[in-house]
Design a protein around this nucleic acid. Structure first.
Lengths: 391, 391
DNA sequence: GTGATTCTTTTCCTCTGTCAATGAAAGAAT
DNA sequence: ATTCTTTCATTGACAGAGGAAAAGAATCAC
């Protein structure tokens, strides 16, 4: 683990303050009484926790007094001042960098992206630093300081150490990314796996708010999964977790780059779908958009490919639900553009493979604009800033 | 959730005391310094936490002064007085009840079992009560009070409510078992799912001690799995968790009673193995012992059946490891008698299906005497007595 | 015996969060 | 208009948990 960075520390000093702050952050404007109820603290403790956070400007009073009860002293709502702090989130992919400037409520203020020439650290890092400085200048325009930088990378990332252990896409091994970027930018840097980062964003600001157990499934170039169990993101003792893409669904299925056959990723990820569409139609389909176009025109062979992919995803979700029994599964990812084609397969295969009462698990979808990955990175930075893992 | 029972409360009153007690319970005799180091408390806090626990007799000083360093004041070891309290653990199966009397360290003092005539609650409950009273008499012989009763039942059990929601084996639905047995015996009763109970025993007193993430896989009449993530047993939002037995391994595999094809349980559980052995040999093999006998004589057809079963288990373990990345997987269950026949299949299939560094996960086995299920139930009672979920 | 070393306890002391009482802000009742 | 009722919020006293540092205790080395 890196030594604690010397940057200004979290706004919440005591456990109670941290609890209050994260509660308000996730559950929007609340009265103090309501905060006390949700956190289990006494109202006295809430008052004492809120005051310093208000003095620092992180919490503010007021607004949005909707339906108040007609009797008794009206309540004052407490909410987070989203504009009090800014964070930068960066997603590094094989061929481009997406960066966002997000506020304390993880709403995107500015988004940028640059294409990459090479993917070795020597080529990527200068682009990252340049992009950060660009966004820092933007932040000056808001008159607010940037308090943290989150970087999301696919692969095996050790967040605590700030090291990218192994990223197959980037072909990086043991790159101490956090340390490097910290010295280059002067910002506190959090590095995390991309799917986990997205999961954090969902847990704090999205469909996972208030849930102690849920799963996020991403569909696109790969098939990924982020897991929250007991209120915390699962990281895996050896850096592997949520590897839903390499659940083997069918021993006779197509070979996967991992060496097995019939992995979910070998059936339902973009490259697999393209391969199958080409083989089914004999057409030189090169992009997902073309495949989608064919399916939308009603080509039954192509629709069948998507149906099979949906079935594979549905069975994978069934496996996750059977193993962990989450309250909800959120399906997201670029592949969601084809959700209408997947939907039936997913639904049926999930219903068939879920065991007993596990079918009750809520399966929802959530669109994923491409900056969302970078937003996830920003969420990890916010999380580090607040300094609370448990939520 | 049931109202808090009026029985004598936990020995540990403060968080620190609870932490100290569970640490000593799981990690054997420790010096106070060592306790402080492991818990992160100050040595002053350890002293203060230990004293009242010693006065109550739950902790005692001494014994087992092995290799002490030659210099400085010798350390006093602190350990749990296992005999200070007794617990009863009961496992209810379809046709018999196994009961154990266990001490505070979950060591079995007495074991009993009775066969059941019927499996409806009206038939089972009197047998349970009778067995409990029998063991209470035994406990009198030790001159120690029984402080809790744990009951393990397969199926969907709501531990917090003390209700068996649905047990297919027993054909029970919404039986408020804890309440009933509590009034019948006067003991605080904890009811839990059998595999989870076994997992608790492993977490506190077995191969899971000190691990925050591990999995327990049971092989036998069914294929089960208990999961510990972030130091806590996973229960599942809808009562389903660890349902490894119904991961579908092969869409073309044998049909499973759950309605799918190629579930792990339909390949590797006892009934499936017997079915396959019969079909492979044409012999009227009726028991696991006979199948084992055939395999041990070297019949290649039978060995092949076991090999395929091992492969299915190995792939299921691979799925668990890919999803959760536990530090260790413990394989146990009555089916372990055939482990030599499974071993290669498990090992190879796990190694093949584990993704990347996940193969580093430690996979071990642990023999399972049949009272072990009841011991698991006793472990849940101990856990309730101590009143600490987090470990 | 004296000193060195290490474990353990004691003595303060800080600091967190609760309790219970008080204050504050509205509408309702008189 | 004034008082009452109701609910929200704050205050101040307080209990108690755990830490820091010093003192005490038990052993071996000399």
């Amino acid at each position: 683990m890196r030594s604690t960075s010397p940057h200004e520390v979290v706004p919440a000093t005591t456990p109670a303050a941290s609890l209050v702050f994260t509660t308000v952050l996730s559950h929007g404007p609340l009265t103090r009484i309501e905060i006390a109820r949700r956190t289990g603290l006494s109202s006295a403790a809430v008052t004492k926790a809120v005051r310093p956070l208000m003095q620092l400007g992180y919490l503010v009073e007021g607004a949005d007094e909707g339906a108040r009860p007609a009797v008794g002293r009206p309540a004052n709502l407490v909410r987070v001042d989203a504009g009090r702090a800014l964070f930068i989130g960066i997603k590094v992919t094989g061929d481009e960098i997406i960066a966002v400037l997000a506020d304390l409520c993880c709403r995107i203020r500015v988004a940028r992206h640059v294409r990459l020439a090479g993917r070795e650290p020597g080529a990527v890092l200068p682009s990252v630093t340049a992009l950060v400085h660009e966004l820092l200048t933007e932040a000056d325009g808001f008159g607010v300081q940037v308090r943290g930088l989150g970087i999301a990378v696919s692969g095996d990332v050790d967040r605590a150490a700030g090291v990218v252990r192994y990223s197959p896409f980037l072909e990086w091994r043991d790159v101490p990314l956090a340390g490097i970027v910290e010295t280059a930018t002067g910002l506190p840097v959090t590095v995390d796996n991309d799917v986990r980062a997205l999961t954090v964003a969902e847990q704090w600001f999205g469909a996972g708010v208030g849930l102690s157990d849920f799963a996020l499934v991403t569909v696109g170039a790969g098939i990924g999964c982020g897991l929250v169990v007991h209120g915390r993101v699962v990281s895996g003792a050896h850096g592997v977790a949520g590897e839903i893409g390499h659940l083997s669904i069918d021993p006779l299925g197509p070979p996967c780059h991992c060496g097995n056959n019939g992995c979910v990723e070998a059936i339902a990820a973009d490259p697999a779908i393209l391969r199958e569409v080409r083989s089914a139609t004999g057409l030189p389909v090169a992009t997902v958009a073309e495949a989608l176009e064919l399916a939308r025109t009603g080509d039954p062979r192509v629709r069948e490919v998507y149906a099979r992919a949906g079935e594979a995803i549905g069975r994978a979700i069934g496996s996750v639900v059977n193993l962990l029994g989450p309250e909800r599964v959120v399906i997201s990812g670029e592949g969601l553009a084809a959700y209408d084609l997947f939907a039936e397969g997913i639904r049926d295969a999930f219903a068939a493979s879920a065991f007993g009462t596990a079918v009750q698990c809520d399966v929802t979808t959530r669109p994923l604009p491409f900056e969302e990955w970078a937003r996830g990175a920003a969420a990890t930075a916010i999380q580090s800033f607040i300094g609370s893992d448990t939520h």
